[in-house]
Structures are given as C-alpha cells and as structure tokens.
C-alpha cells in the first residue's frame, strides 16, 4: 500500500465536481443552461433595452406583420398588435411575468415542500401523518382545477394567481420529496449515521440531501414546467395577470379574435412558452444524466 503521488489526478475531485465535469461534456445541456441564463437576464432587464414601451400605442402602425414579411417594419421586429403596441417588447415583458413567476414558485414550493417532506419522513407518529397529509385534500383535485378554485376565493390578480398555483403544486411536491427521502432512509449509510447519534438536521444535511440529487432534479423540473403552464393558462383564462400587465397567456387570449387577421400575435407568445419549457427540460435531463453517471 505505497502512495508515491502516482495518481492521475492532482487533486481529489468531489462528487459534485465530478458530476459538473460530466455535465460539461454534454453540449446540448450546456447550451440549454446558457440559454436559461440569457433568458433570465433578458427578462430581468427587459425594461431597459426593449425598443418600445409594451404599453405605448401607435395608431400609425397597427397590426404590422414581422419585419421579414411583406409590409413589415424594421422598427417593430415582430410586428405590432391591434393597438399598435410592439410585439417584441410585449413578449419580453410577458416573459418577465411568466418565467419570473414560474421561477419564484419553483424556488418557494421547492424549499417549503422539501422541508415539509423531510419533516414528515424524519418524524414518526401523529406529527408525521399530519405533515404528510396536511395538503392531501388538494391532491385529490387536478392542480389546475384547485388553482382555479383557490383563485375564485382569493380574487383574480397576478399575485393571487402565483399563491394559488404554489398552493396547488405544493401537495404533489411534498409527496414526491417525501417518497425520495423515505427511499433514502432505508440505505445502510443513513442507518450508520443515525447510530452515530446524529441529529435529524445533520442527517438530512449530510446524509440525505447529497444523495437525493437525481429525484430532486426530476421533481423540480416537473414543478417548474407545471408552474409555467399554469401561469399561462390562468392568464389565458383571465384569472391571472390583469390589464395592463402583460403576461404570455393573457397576450394570447387578447389576440385570439385576431387570429385570422394577424396569426403572429398568437404564434410568438406560444413559441416563447414552448421554447422555455423545452430548454428547461433539456437542461434538467442533462443534469439528471450527469448525476446518474457521476453516481455510478
């Protein structure tokens, strides 16, 4: 057992570092990651660089097509709507509410749901069942329906729509995180840590959390996708963002009657929602595969 610095590595790579190095070799996933970063930056700083105010009406140029189509104007790259508002600017502002709201919901529900799921899995008896089944009544109803019910109670507004969606997605997330942690609890190293006399917090922090990366990525991805779809749906149905707020779903809804006259108004927000969901799923799938390969 002689060690003479004959190892290939100069320094020992941590499991996370190893997963990262695998992830870096997955080109599509890395591209998706950069696209997400760009999208977030773009939607955050949209008000500073979009060419027009999303609410500025221009009676001179109404229902313009995109600039590459006959009759388009280079001033309005993606055309204008029936009030002469610039589509591109409205798209960016819409992205701000849709993507930003979905990220906020994912962060909030992710943290709260993981904590409740962990508390339910790590405690025993009545406390565990109360935590575990706290929001089960909502689980029986489809999430969109429960979000609609909640929003009729709260009253339609963008903030209420975010709260309603968070509450409707929380039970599912609690259930999935509970299952992931429950499965982890039967592993021998968890039992060994428990026998060392570790507290529940320590057990969760060092024993469970680093080892449930793969299921966590999957459930967070699902959470984000559902959040973005539900925000857009509620906006489309008129329960989410209220005028003059621009949100991708509500932009589609307000352009519905113009679909034959100017199909671009519906197409671009739809493509935007679709692209965001695709990019996030590609990123999470790449991450998940990197974790799986790294843990082998």
């Amino acid at each position: 057992m002689l060690i003479n610095n004959g190892f290939n590595e100069d320094k020992i790579q941590s499991p996370l570092g190893y997963i990262w190095s695998i992830f870096k070799t997955k080109t599509i996933a890395v591209v998706a990651m950069w696209l997400i970063i760009v999208l977030i930056i773009v939607s955050l700083f949209a008000p500073w660089f979009v060419p027009h105010s999303p609410l500025a009406q221009n009676p001179e140029s109404m229902l313009l097509p995109p600039y590459w189509v006959e009759g388009g104007d280079i001033n309005h790259i993606l055309g204008t709507d029936d009030l002469g508002r610039d589509s591109l600017s409205r798209l960016f502002h819409g992205l701000q509410l849709t993507l930003g709201g979905a990220l906020l919901i994912t962060l909030l529900v992710g943290i709260i749901g993981m904590l409740i799921g962990a508390a339910a899995a790590l405690t025993k008896g009545v406390k565990a069942s109360v935590l575990h089944h706290l929001l089960d009544a909502l689980l029986a109803i489809p999430t969109l329906l429960s979000a609609l019910i909640l929003i009729t109670i709260f009253g339609p507004s963008y903030t209420n729509c975010l709260i309603a969606i968070s509450l409707s997605l929380l039970p599912q997330f609690i259930r999935s995180s509970f299952l992931a942690i429950e499965q982890e609890l039967s592993k021998q190293y968890i039992v060994a840590i428990q026998l060392d006399g570790a507290t529940k917090t320590r057990l969760f922090r060092y024993g469970i959390l680093p080892n449930i990366l793969e299921p966590t990525i999957t459930i967070i991805n699902r959470l984000f996708t559902m959040a973005i779809i539900e925000i857009a749906t509620l906006g489309f149905l008129g329960f989410g963002a209220q005028l003059p707020q621009t949100e991708l779903g509500s932009i589609i809804a307000s352009s519905m009657e113009l679909i034959y006259l100017s199909p671009w108004l519906v197409t671009f927000p739809g493509i935007a929602i679709f692209t965001v969901i695709i990019i996030v799923n590609v990123l999470s799938e790449g991450l998940r595969h990197a974790v799986l390969e790294g843990e082998e």
Binding site: I12, Y189, V191, I193, D196, G197, A198, Y206, P210, N211
Partner: peptide, 26 residues
C-alpha cells in the same frame, strides 16, 4: 456496529476524513 457491506454503509458523498470525524464530533 460494523455493517455487512461497507460499500453501502459508507456515505458516498463524504470523504473518509468526514466519515471518521462525525462520530467523534457527536
């Protein structure tokens, strides 16, 4: 206690140093 299979009883995400450190710390 020493467990049956050490490849499953050592936490794969912590170093040997930390694995040995935890019981002393606790």
């Amino acid at each position: 206690m020493i467990f049956q299979d050490p490849s499953s009883s050592l936490n794969p995400k912590t170093t040997v140093g930390k694995i040995l450190h935890a019981p002393l710390q606790l």
